[in-house]
Design a protein around this nucleic acid. Structure first.
Lengths: 113, 113
DNA sequence: TCGATAATTCCAGAATTATGGAAGTGTGTC
DNA sequence: GACACACTTCCATAATTCTGGAATTATCGA
């Protein structure tokens, strides 16, 4: 994950409809959801939903697979984890903060020695 | 963290200059950086940097404190962790995925019983 | 082949966001 | 007070993103 990819992914998620769609997919797990199921949940016109899905696709946050007439969409967990890791990379000036543990710098450590 | 706050935070980070600024602050740790230090790193005109900082401030991702003539800016780790948690909330249909561990659903589990 | 269903692309007007020069607000120093 | 410095606000232009109707593509079943 480099800066450009991160910006693209964050931009893709920074819209109420797209974030809602993405979260539904994350919560749906590996089976994902069909575009129609997403449409029912979000109540968006088809063209609008497709436009949003295209943004998520371009960002690599979801993948899809045609199954007959329906297209099944899934969240890409690897990419999500890479994004989360990027945001916290080398955080807190080495003060024992990791993506696993969360970031919480020690309460006191001023610059003056 | 609700959907609106998450969208605002993600939107704030979805810009190359703001993401770079935020990551610098995350990596700087609790001491943060002054606006001038950020300006030197990012090489942006003052008005442009201020506009970006205002977006990060409005999203609650950074806080600042005036110290004499300089303004010191810090990343808000609590808010960052809340955002990361929101993205992975209830993920993977309960298949043992947590923000701590990352999301990696089991390879096979189709819907058909 | 024909019709129905699922989803997409095309397109253009509406809305939002980005950029940075010029002017303004605090703050410290002489 | 007068000046320099650090940063902000104001504002107008430019650039990007959003939205959804209409037309199009793809698949399935009869």
């Amino acid at each position: 994950m480099d800066a450009d990819h991160a910006v693209t992914a964050l931009g893709a998620l920074s819209h109420a409809s797209r974030l809602a769609a993405y979260r539904s997919l994350v919560q749906a797990g590996e089976d994902g959801l069909s575009v129609g199921e997403l449409r029912d949940q979000l109540e968006l016109p088809p063209a609008t939903l497709t436009a949003h899905l295209n943004v998520l696709r371009a960002a690599g946050l979801v993948s899809d697979e045609r199954q007959g007439r329906v297209i099944r969409v899934r969240a890409d967990y690897a990419r999500m984890n890479a994004l989360l890791a990027y945001l916290t990379e080398n955080c807190c000036a080495g003060d024992a903060c990791t993506p696993e543990r969360g970031c919480a710098p020690k309460p006191t450590r001023r610059s003056k020695p």
